[in-house]
C-alpha cells in the first residue's frame, strides 16, 4: 500500500518537473512535438529505473561498508554516465528498433538532473532497494506525463498568435506555470 502511494505521489503530488524543478532542461528543450516528448519520456523512465537500482547498489554495497559516503556525488554521476553509455551500446547491438526510437535522447539523459536527483533523494531518505525503484518509477512517470502534456499544449500554441515579446521560451515558461498550478490541485491528495 505504501509503495502504491509512493508511486502515485511521485506522478502527481511531487511531480519532479512541475513542483520540484528537476529535469527542466529536457522539459523545455525537447517538448516541441508530442512524438519526441514521448520518446524522451520513455528513455527517462528506462534510465531512471536502472540508475536507481545501480546507485542503490553502489551506495549500500561499496560506499557504506568502506565509510566513503562523502564520495556519493562523484560515484552517482559516474554510475549514471557509464550506465547511459552502456544502455546505448547494449540497445544498439541487441534492440536496434528501440535504439532508433530513443537514440538521440539517450546521451542527453546524463545531464538530466532528475536522474541524479532521484538517486540522491533515495539515498537521503534511506530507502531500501524496492522502495528506491518504486520512487524512481513514480518520478520518471511523472516526468513523462508532464513532458507529453506540455508538448501537446505547445503544439497548439504554435498555431496561435502570441505577443511578439512572448515568442518562444517566455510563452513556454508561462504555460509550464499554468500546468504547475493545475498540478498544485493534487497536493494534499496523498500524505506519506
Amino acid at each position: 500500500m505504501y509503495l502504491i502511494l509512493l508511486l502515485l505521489a511521485g506522478v502527481f503530488v511531487n511531480n519532479y518537473v512541475l513542483s520540484q524543478f528537476l529535469g527542466i532542461c529536457p522539459f523545455l528543450g525537447v517538448s516541441k512535438k508530442v512524438d519526441t516528448a514521448a520518446g524522451m519520456g520513455a528513455a527517462v523512465i528506462f534510465v531512471i529505473v536502472l540508475a536507481c537500482a545501480a546507485s542503490w547498489l553502489v551506495y549500500n554495497l561499496i560506499l557504506l561498508p568502506l565509510n566513503m559516503t562523502y564520495l556519493y556525488n562523484i560515484a552517482f554521476i559516474l554510475v549514471i554516465a557509464s550506465l547511459v553509455q552502456f544502455v546505448e551500446m547494449f540497445l544498439k547491438k541487441s534492440v536496434p528498433s528501440l535504439y532508433q526510437a530513443l537514440g538521440v535522447f539517450l546521451p542527453l539523459i546524463t545531464t538530466n538532473c532528475a536522474v541524479l536527483g532521484v538517486a540522491v533523494v533515495n539515498m537521503q531518505n534511506e530507502y531500501d532497494l524496492i522502495t528506491s525503484i518504486v520512487n524512481g518509477v513514480g518520478g520518471a512517470a511523472g516526468f513523462a506525463l508532464a513532458i507529453i502534456l506540455f508538448a501537446g499544449i505547445r503544439e497548439r500554441i504554435e498555431d496561435n498568435d502570441t505577443p511578439k515579446a512572448f515568442d518562444g521560451f517566455p510563452m513556454a515558461l508561462v504555460t509550464a506555470g499554468l500546468m504547475s498550478i493545475a498540478f498544485l490541485g493534487f497536493s494534499g491528495l496523498i500524505s506519506l
Binding site: S19, F21, A165, F166, F169, P170, A172, L173, V174, G177
Partner: peptide, 19 residues
Amino acid sequence: IMAPGAFFTLGCMMAALNH
C-alpha cells in the same frame, strides 16, 4: 514563492527583455 510563481516570473522577465 511556490513552483508556478517561478515559471511566471522567469517567463515575464524574459518577455520584458525580448521586448
